[in-house]
C-alpha cells in the first residue's frame, strides 16, 4: 500500500469516526435535552391568552406554531416571510435528502424531487436576508452573539457545498449512497473521494454536534413551551404543582 492510499484510509477512518460521533451527539444530546424538558415540572398554568380550551385546540395551536409561525406574523411581516421561507426550504431539502438515507426510496420523495430542487436554489435568499437583518438592524445586532451569525453562515455553507456537489462538481451518487447506508447499517465503507462532498459532509457533522447545545434546540423545544402547549382551563379542574407541598409557608411567624 502506498503512502497516498494509507493517508486516504486514515482520513476515511477519521471521517467515519466523526460521522458516528456527530450522530451520537445529536441523537443522545437532543433526546436527553427534550427528556429534561419533559420531566421538568410546570408549577403554574401560564397559557397565552386567548388560549385553547381543549386538547384538539392545543394540537392545532402547536401545529400552527410549527408550520406557519402565527406569533411572528403578528410581530414582523418581513421577518416572518424570511423565517418561513428559510424553514420551508430546510424542510423540503431535508425531505429530498431522505433519498440518501432510505432504501427503498419512497415514491413520494422521488415525485417531490422536482419541487425540492428549487428549494435549494431559493434557500440562500432567506438565509442571506436573515444574515443581513442581523447586521442591518441595530436592535437585532445588539442581541446577536457569535453563534447567531455562526449558525446562519454554517447553514449557508452547507447549502452552498450541497449545490456544488449537485450541479458543478458532481459526486457519483451510488458511492455516496453506499457510504451513507454503510454508516447507517454500522458496516461503514470508505467515502467517495470527492473534496466538495467531503466538505459538505463535515459541515453537516459539525451542525449535528452543535445542535443539541445551541439555540437550534428550538426545533424540538417549541413543543415544550408552557405558554403554547397548555389548555386554558386554569380555574377548573384543579391544576396540581408537583413541588407545591415542598414549599413551607410557615417559616416565619
Amino acid at each position: 500500500m502506498n503512502d497516498a492510499a494509507m493517508i486516504w484510509n486514515l482520513f476515511a477512518g477519521v471521517l467515519i469516526g466523526l460521522a458516528y460521533l456527530s450522530a451520537f451527539a445529536f441523537v443522545a444530546g437532543l433526546t436527553l435535552r427534550l427528556f429534561l424538558y419533559f420531566k421538568t415540572p410546570v408549577p403554574l398554568k401560564i397559557v397565552q391568552t386567548p388560549g385553547p380550551k381543549n386538547a384538539p385546540g392545543v394540537l392545532a395551536r402547536m401545529a400552527g406554531d410549527a408550520l406557519i409561525f402565527p406569533n411572528l406574523f403578528q410581530a414582523d411581516k418581513a421577518l416572518w416571510l424570511g423565517a418561513w421561507l428559510f424553514h420551508a426550504c430546510l424542510l423540503l431539502i431535508f425531505v429530498r435528502h431522505s433519498r440518501y438515507f432510505l432504501y427503498p426510496v419512497p415514491e413520494l420523495v422521488i415525485d417531490w424531487q422536482a419541487i425540492s430542487i428549487y428549494a435549494g436554489f431559493l434557500f440562500p435568499i432567506p438565509a442571506l436576508y436573515l444574515l443581513w437583518r442581523r447586521m442591518a438592524s441595530a436592535r437585532v445586532l445588539f442581541v446577536s452573539g457569535l453563534p447567531d451569525f455562526g449558525v446562519l453562515i454554517l447553514l449557508t455553507a452547507i447549502a452552498a457545498t450541497g449545490m456544488l456537489v449537485n450541479y458543478y462538481a458532481r459526486a457519483y451518487l451510488v458511492d455516496v449512497k453506499a457510504f451513507i447506508l454503510g454508516l447507517l447499517t454500522l458496516t461503514p465503507v470508505a467515502p467517495p473521494q470527492h473534496p466538495v462532498f467531503i466538505a459538505h459532509f463535515i459541515l453537516v457533522c459539525l451542525l449535528l454536534i452543535y445542535f443539541p447545545f445551541s439555540k437550534l434546540l428550538h426545533a424540538g423545544g417549541i413543543f415544550f413551551s408552557p405558554t403554547r402547549n397548555q389548555i386554558d382551563n386554569v380555574l377548573y379542574p384543579r391544576y396540581v404543582n408537583p413541588w407545591n407541598e415542598e414549599v413551607r409557608i410557615d417559616q416565619n411567624r
Partner: peptide, 20 residues
C-alpha cells in the same frame, strides 16, 4: 429544575428580535 418554562426559554430563544 422547578420551572420548565425557565429551562426551555433560556435554551430555545433564537435571538430573532421580534419582541424588541
Amino acid at each position: 429544575h422547578k420551572y420548565r418554562g425557565l429551562q426551555v426559554y433560556l435554551d430555545i430563544c433564537a435571538q430573532c428580535g421580534a419582541c424588541a
